[in-house]
């Protein structure tokens, strides 16, 4: 009986720990399968704290990558980009050079009505490595809302 109660208590906790971006290829990066989690700067925010941005989930990781890791991150993000709504400027923006993405903001298709999902990527080339930032977010915010909230005037 005690075991059943314990399972019932822990079940919601395990659900909370499930990452929102599950099912995406970039989940490998968030899960630390490309770069060790200890070497990444991670933030995960859910709920009321994001209300002012009309978001429900905001998950980011920042890390330094070598050539190989950058190429892998690039490839994983590109594969997830296949799930984008359209190439229209209202749904995505992207800059790439020589087959590598420098930055991208992409709205993904979503089956849940009223919820928008976005993935963002930024790669900054430094002298000895690349600084990569990866973002997953979901909520009611449109891309126009996000631009308004986060684009420097």
């Amino acid at each position: 009986m005690k075991r059943i109660i314990l399972i019932l208590l822990l079940a919601p906790c395990s659900l909370l720990l499930c990452q929102a971006q599950q099912g995406l290829h970039i989940n490998d990066i968030f899960e630390g399968r490309l770069i060790d989690k200890e070497k990444m700067e991670e933030s995960l925010v859910r709920g009321d704290n994001l209300a002012q941005y009309k978001l429900q989930v905001l998950h980011t990781v920042k890390f330094a990558a070598n050539d190989k890791e950058r190429a892998k991150a690039d490839a994983l993000f590109s594969r997830d980009m296949e799930g984008r709504i359209s190439d229209d400027e209202s749904n995505m923006e992207m800059e790439s050079h020589n087959g590598h993405i420098y930055y991208a903001i992409v709205q993904l298709t979503d089956s849940q009505k009223g919820r928008h999902r976005y993935i963002c990527y930024q790669c900054k080339e430094k002298s000895s490595h690349y600084d990569i930032t990866l973002v997953y977010m979901e909520g009611k915010a449109t891309l126009a809302d996000l631009r308004k909230s986060f684009k420097k005037k």
């Binding site: 933030s43 925010v45 996000l146």
Partner: peptide
Amino acid sequence: DLRLGTEALTEIF
């Protein structure tokens, strides 16, 4: 986390 996340988004946008 909120500060880190919003900083990252501002940088990307």
